[in-house]
């Protein structure tokens, strides 16, 4: 296996998940870089060494594509793209920030799930409370109804807060990613 094929194969592997046409475009860019390098009298190994680590390049390209998408459309999938993209990059050189970020994402997610569950159970309890009172509940039907309403709206606001927090977090991540990965990694020490 020669250097050129190894480089392109690792690059392609790192770009998995991107649209096929985008991957083909990117791979073509680097392929012609090898072509031009050899025309200029460099060996494949030399060209590959000067290009840098293909895995890292692939993550930069992925993160860039994710950020771009988040700026175009504020959707759930785009937000997920930013989180995965920046985390992927951070995994390469930010071992300190990574656990913090992962913890933040995980706790927001669990609050989100908890909020959803509370809201749902409140909504399910409400009709029962109003019609027959809750089984095993000491108060009267009004109290049971208010309790269910409280659970439903409390859960809903927890979910809303989580969504707001997530949007904020993704924006911070996007800004962070832009600042740190607007290219140029120092010459790889080979």
């Amino acid at each position: 296996m020669n250097e050129r094929q190894t480089f392109l194969r690792r690059l392609k592997a790192g770009l998995k998940g991107m649209p096929r046409s985008a991957v083909a475009d990117i791979v073509a860019d680097y392929d012609s870089h090898f072509e031009a390098g050899q025309a200029a009298g460099r060996s494949e190994a030399e060209v590959a060494a000067r290009l840098g680590d293909p895995t890292r390049l692939a993550r930069e390209l992925q993160a860039e594509a994710g950020l771009r998408r988040w700026e175009d459309e504020r959707s759930m999938a785009a937000a997920l793209g930013v989180i995965v993209g920046v985390l992927g990059l951070a995994a390469l050189d930010l071992f300190i920030v990574l656990p913090l970020l992962t913890a933040a994402v995980a706790s927001v997610f669990s609050f989100f799930v908890a909020g959803l569950a509370i809201c749902l159970s409140g909504s399910v309890m409400l009709p029962f409370a109003l019609i027959t009172n809750l089984p095993g509940f000491a108060g009267d039907r009004l109290q049971a109804g208010l309790l269910s309403l409280g659970l439903a709206s409390g859960g809903a606001s927890l979910v809303a807060v989580c969504i707001l927090f997530t949007i904020g977090l993704v924006n911070v991540l996007a800004r962070y990613g832009r600042a740190h990965y607007r290219l140029i990694a120092p010459q790889p020490s080979v």
Partner: peptide, 10 residues
């Protein structure tokens, strides 16, 4: 003195 590969994302 930069890594050459980074030119393409830019």
């Amino acid at each position: 003195d930069m890594g050459e590969g980074t030119i393409y994302p830019l």
